[in-house]
Design a binder for these strands. Structure first.
Length: 377
RNA sequence: GGGUGGGUACCAAAGCGGUCAACUGGAUCAGACUGUAAAUCUGAUGCCUUCGGGCUUCGGGGGUUCGAAUCCCUCCCCACCCA
């Protein structure tokens, strides 16, 4: 059975629309996954996330392994039931924690040994174990365990790391025992020959989809786009492509134009909690035409100096007396009912409501963005 | 009326002869955030600056000293206790 189908391709770019079939339903691509690392999109409920238009969310193997632990998940009947999210869930393998928690982990051939940031206990996460945990979670899209190296890395290290990731990919695939999707993750840092070599290796192993990993870890954005230009053409047309951890709105568009179908990022949720709100920078009236323009003309020709949106830092004092909504064009709970002045007040007084409203707004923005992108293709 | 303890930057609060424009919180201001150890983190917060430094501050006034937020005198104010 074909689980991914491209239904439309853009004429002027490599952008494409598609449908990805998962155990918990179909997803329109390109899509964005709000992040629920520990089984919750911070500060909001799954019902609210769904209402924002989320088709799928992302969760994390490493964090759920430590807390609540698999016995709890098993007792609940899987992560979907545990957190009351009935849509698809993609789970990251813990590979990103190799990067983000680099101070408390050791890489071995067998896997990654983490020293828990919670209680100091040691946990060896092997490729097999990562798959097993993800199967226990009931993940619809599982990711192979990989090593996400920092930027910059020496070529020799990048090669070594990449080779390890390949052997882990093979072991992951071998351990994969249910019908849910398993994605490979391509690495190779910013080295062209490594990137190309690695995609080819992974395609040869064969996965349900392919992720481009190891990006947005500090490299210049142009390099990130360049890596996509090397890697995506090597990927099969009939498999979904996932750019892990990206990104800012314009980066998502640039990646879609390069043929990427899937995204996730903490930016909308984390920045919301930190008081940065995403606001459309131009009329959304002719949304479809507008989106099409972004895709075809590129961002240089769009308004606001290449940006079609603004980052509104609501804590700035200039919003103290601003009684306008955060974004008059937005239909979220925040913008429909509350002023900038009030939201700023909620932030300044540390009211938890601030985080919730801001999160709903940003998630709404990102999902709306994806909707426009899909319409534009 | 008597006694005791105090008055330090926007607030709170350290400092008790030089290394003090003054620890530390808070508040405020600005910035960062990319497969979430993040409702977090970084920086700024007397005035001026050619960024070397310069100038005016620790309730008011006076004094001691080479030198005072720090010691002495005096005045003002505050808190608590006793009458």
């Amino acid at each position: 059975m074909q689980k991914f189908k491209v239904i439309k391709t853009d004429k002027k770019s490599k952008a494409r629309r598609g449908i990805l079939q998962t155990a918990h339903g179909k997803i329109q691509t390109p899509f964005f996954m709000p992040i629920a690392t520990s089984g919750a999109v911070k500060t909001v409920t799954p019902e609210e996330v769904k209402k924002c238009g989320a088709q799928i969310i992302l969760s994390n193997t490493y964090h759920l392994m430590l807390r609540p632990g698999m016995p709890v998940i098993k007792k609940a009947g899987g992560l979907h039931k545990f957190m009351n999210w009935s849509g698809p869930i993609l789970t990251d393998s813990g590979g990103y924690q190799v990067f983000s928690l680099s101070k408390i982990r050791k890489i071995k051939n067998s896997g990654v040994e983490f020293q828990s940031h919670l209680d100091g206990s040691k946990h060896l996460l092997t490729p097999e174990k990562a798959i097993k945990i993800q199967e226990t979670l009931g993940s619809d899209i599982m990711m192979v365990l990989d090593e996400c190296p920092k930027y910059p890395v020496s070529k020799s290290y990048a090669r070594k790391s990449m080779e390890l990731t390949t052997t882990w990919a093979i072991r992951s695939k071998r351990a994969h025992s249910n019908k849910n999707l398993l994605f490979g993750i391509t690495q190779g840092s910013t080295y062209k020959d490594l990137r190309i070599q690695h995609v080819r290796e992974l395609v040869k192993i064969g996965f349900d989809g392919y992720a481009v990993g190891g990006l947005a870890v500090g490299e210049p954005v142009q390099k990130m786009y360049q890596v996509l230009d090397w890697v995506v053409p090597e990927l099969p047309e009939n498999k979904p492509r996932y750019l892990m951890g990206v990104g800012k709105p314009e980066q998502i568009i640039e990646a879609v134009k390069r043929g990427v179908d899937m995204f996730d990022c903490v930016i909308p949720t984390r920045n919301a909690r930190h008081g940065t709100l995403y606001v459309w920078g131009n009329k959304l009236g002719g949304a479809r035409a507008f989106a099409r323009a972004w895709l075809k003309q590129g961002l240089q020709s769009t308004p606001l100096g290449g940006k079609f949106y603004q980052e509104l830092r609501i804590k700035q004092s200039k919003y103290r007396l601003d009684i306008k909504p955060v974004d008059p064009q937005c239909n979220c709970e925040l913008c429909q009912n509350y002023s900038r002045s009030y939201l700023r007040h909620l932030f300044m007084t540390n009211e938890p409501l601030a985080l919730r409203l801001a999160t709903l707004h940003n998630v709404n923005f990102y999902l709306r963005l994806m909707e426009l992108i899909r319409k534009g293709i």
